[in-house]
Design a protein around this nucleic acid. Structure first.
Length: 239
DNA sequence: AACCAGGACGTGA
DNA sequence: TCACGTCATGGT
């Protein structure tokens, strides 16, 4: 049992190193309010602040990560970012000003990111939450209690905005590690999360970069079926 | 022209 | 608990 755990740990690190050497640091979480960051697209070697794991550097950036985490739900970052930039134009990412926007204005502003009716509500929910925090770091349960925040979004906020060692599991993570036979399709969120958290050192920059690399890798090899993934073929578990 | 995107929620079984 | 349906725009 312990031997298996060590082996898995080693393989997970090898996969990480492989992805990192393939794509380089991704510069997550992308921040528009980051001086010296040209608003370009994310992706391999195109992140906003690759290799900088000290962000966010202020409360506004924490709030920006929260907004982005909602906006990017079930859409791509390019569109979420457009919505974020428009919100920035209108409010400067000021929570009070965002609450002052009318519902219709808010919806119109974020329309490009899809699901704008519910996301407008979710943005308000998380904005009220953020204001009430008054700079305090929230617990996972508190964040999960916000309507519009599920497990992935909560972990994204904790990992990238608050540097908490919570591994983020998204659809891509499931897809890759199911393909490699590390998890089954129907594994619950917590199970997949623990595959990483129990077999990797509790290292925030590692968790941040790993998740970002998974997304980049999946975009390249796990969109069209059947999946091939020659880059990680050697790590596939035979069963 | 279907299919997909860095999900979450409500519902009925 | 769980399997589905729903939410919606934009890119390929």
């Amino acid at each position: 049992m312990k031997a298996l755990k060590i082996a898995k740990s080693s393989i997970l690190m090898n996969i990480y190193e492989r992805l990192l050497s393939l794509y380089g640091p991704q510069g997550w979480w992308p921040l528009i309010n980051y001086k010296g960051s040209p608003p370009t697209k994310t992706g391999s070697m195109q992140g906003y602040h690759p290799g900088n794991y000290d962000l966010p550097e202020n409360n506004k950036q924490i709030y920006e990560i929260m907004l982005g985490a909602i906006l990017v739900q079930n859409t791509n970052w390019k569109l979420a970012e457009q919505a974020l930039l428009r919100l920035n134009d209108e409010t400067g990412i000021d929570p009070e000003k965002i609450l002052q926007l009318s519902a219709s204005d808010l919806k119109e502003t974020i329309k490009c990111a899809g699901f704008f009716n519910q996301k407008a509500n979710y943005l308000r929910n998380i904005t009220e939450f953020f204001i009430k925090l008054e700079g305090r770091t929230p617990h996972r349960k508190e964040i999960l209690a916000i309507k519009g925040v599920g497990e992935e979004t909560a972990d994204s906020i904790l990992l990238y905005a608050y540097h908490k060692p919570e591994f983020v599991v998204d659809a891509y993570t499931r897809r890759i590690f199911h393909y490699l036979n590390f998890t089954n399709q129907k594994a619950k969120y917590k199970q997949v999360k623990e595959l990483f958290e129990l077999n990797l050192p509790e290292d925030v920059p590692l968790f941040q970069e790993y998740h970002a690399l998974i997304v980049e890798h999946a975009k390249r090899h796990y969109i069209k079926k059947p999946f091939k993934d020659e880059a990680l073929q050697e790590f596939k578990i035979n069963k």
